[in-house]
Simulated assay, not measured.
Amino acid sequence: MNIKYEIIPSEKVGSCRDLCNELMIFQKSKAKIKPELFDNMNFETRMIPSMKGAIYNYIVVVKDDDKPVGYVYSNISPKETYSNDFATFFDLSSVSRNNVGCLSQFYIKEEYREQGIGSILFNMSMKWLKQFDHVEDYFIFVSNGNDDALEFYKRKGFAFSHEILDGFITVLRDK
């Protein structure tokens, strides 16, 4: 294996398309609550709107040689972005500043898991998110059934905040 981490500009986000779509399929396969909600979720309906609603975007693609094998997408967004037709992701009054940081999407192909890649991506994202002095609230949203991800984030210092959509998503928070 020849693992490389590449920070990509927003204009090259298309290189994450297949990985993002794999993430949606993976999340649906794990879901115990409303898996059908994933039927309309893909790169065009999740990644692109999230990026457009954000103030700053951060994307890291992991490659084995030139083959993309994982990615992480984080953003800084106005807190109001997280109250929309789909759901209200947190109590907006619990966030004192105007913007929040979010580790929004995180996926590693199965054969590359448990090799430290996830920790490197997580640390890169947190370092990027914490550079913004005007942000003090950080969120991660974990789809139901993805217990491995939930435990990973808890080991990294995030704590359970609440659930939304009748348990479809678990909200983790680090303040």
Rank of each mutant, 00 (worst) to 15 (best):
S125Y: 02
F158T: 01
E151M: 10
S119N: 14
V171C: 14
S93G: 08
V72F: 02
F122L: 07
R113F: 09
Y153Q: 12
V171R: 06
E11W: 10
F26S: 09
D91T: 11
Y58L: 01
T45N: 14
L150R: 06
F86T: 11
S119K: 13
V135T: 04
S10M: 05
L150G: 04
V95C: 06
K4M: 11
Y58R: 01
F132G: 02
D147E: 14
K154D: 03
K79M: 02
E22H: 06
A31L: 06
C16I: 10
V13D: 05
S96G: 12
I59E: 00
F43V: 11
D147N: 13
L150Q: 02
G101M: 03
N123T: 05
I3V: 13
F86I: 14
E44M: 09
C20Q: 08
Y107S: 02
M126R: 05
E110A: 15
S50I: 04
T45L: 09
A159K: 10
F86A: 08
Y153D: 07
M24Y: 04
S104G: 11
K52V: 13
L103T: 01
L92M: 14
I108T: 02
I48Y: 03
V60E: 08
G101H: 00
Y58H: 07
N144H: 13
K109W: 08
M51C: 08
N99V: 03
Q115N: 05
F90A: 01
S161D: 14
M124S: 06
C102K: 02
K109E: 15
G53H: 05
N146W: 04
R97D: 12
M24A: 07
T81E: 10
F141R: 05
Y112D: 12
F26W: 11
I120L: 14
V69E: 04
F168V: 12
Y73D: 03
P78L: 09
N123E: 10
D66Y: 14
H134T: 06
S10E: 11
E80K: 13
S29F: 13
S93D: 14
P49W: 05
E136W: 04
Y71E: 04
D65T: 10
A159L: 07
Y82M: 09
V72M: 05
K156L: 08
C16S: 09
F139H: 07
N75M: 10
N98I: 04
Y5V: 09
I169F: 15
K12G: 03
G157A: 12
F139C: 02
M51G: 03
T45I: 10
G157R: 12
N21I: 04
L92C: 11
Q27S: 10
E36R: 05
P9F: 07
H134W: 06
L23R: 01
F168P: 00
F122T: 03
K67Q: 15
I117D: 00
I140M: 02
C20S: 11
F90D: 00
M124E: 10
S161K: 13
V69L: 08
I48N: 03
G70L: 01
K63I: 11
K4A: 11
P68V: 02
M24L: 03
S83D: 11
K34D: 14
I59Q: 00
Q105G: 01
E110N: 15
D65W: 07
D18S: 12
V62H: 00
D91I: 10
